[in-house]
Amino acid sequence: MTVVFWISAAVTVISTVMVITRRNVVHALLYLIVSLLAMAVIFFSLGAPFVAALEVIVYAGAIMVLFIFVVMMLNLGARASQQERQWLKPRMMIGPAILAAILMIELGYAIFAGGGIEIITGEPVGAKQVGMSLFETYLLGVELASILLLAGLVGAYHLGRRDRSEEEES
C-alpha cells in the first residue's frame, strides 16, 4: 500500500498544478475532480475508508456539481454552444483520463493484489468508530455544523436571488 500512497500523491500534486494553471474553467474542474479522487485513494491507503467514501460523494460529487452548475449558468450567451464545442474537444479529456486510469489501476491493485485492506500505519479506523466519536465526544460540534449549514443555505438563497427591480426590467 506504500506504492499506492506515493503514486496517488504524485497524481494529486500533478493534477492540482494543472488546476491552477489552466485557462478554461471546465478543464480546471476536470483536473480538480481527478485530484479529489486521488485524495480519496490516499485516505483509503491511510486506513480511513469512511472519509474516502465521503470525499468521493460530497467533494467530487456534490461540490463539483455546484461548480459546474454555476459555470453553465454564467455562459448563457449566444456564443455559448460554440464555446462548449471548443472546450470539450476530445484531446482535452486525455490528461484527466490518463490520471484517472492510473488511479483505477492502483485501486484494482490495492483491492486484488494488496491483500484486502492492509494499510500503511496501524489499524484502519472504520465508520463505526468515527460515528461513535462523532455523536458522543463531538455532539456539540455536530449541532454547530448543522447551524452553519442552515446559515449557508439562507445566505446562498439571499445572495443568489435576483433583485426585484432587476426582475421587473427583464
Binding site: A48, E55, I63, F69, S133, L159
Partner: peptide
C-alpha cells in the same frame, strides 16, 4: 488521526467537509 489510530482526525475532516460545502454555496452565490 491515522498515525495515532484514533477517529478524531476523521471527525475533524467531516467538520471541514461541512464548512467547505457551506462556504462554496455562499461563494458561488
Amino acid at each position: 488521526g491515522s498515525n495515532w489510530g484514533t477517529a478524531d482526525g476523521q471527525v475533524m475532516f467531516i467538520f471541514i467537509l461541512t464548512m467547505a460545502a457551506a462556504e462554496v454555496a455562499v461563494g458561488l452565490a
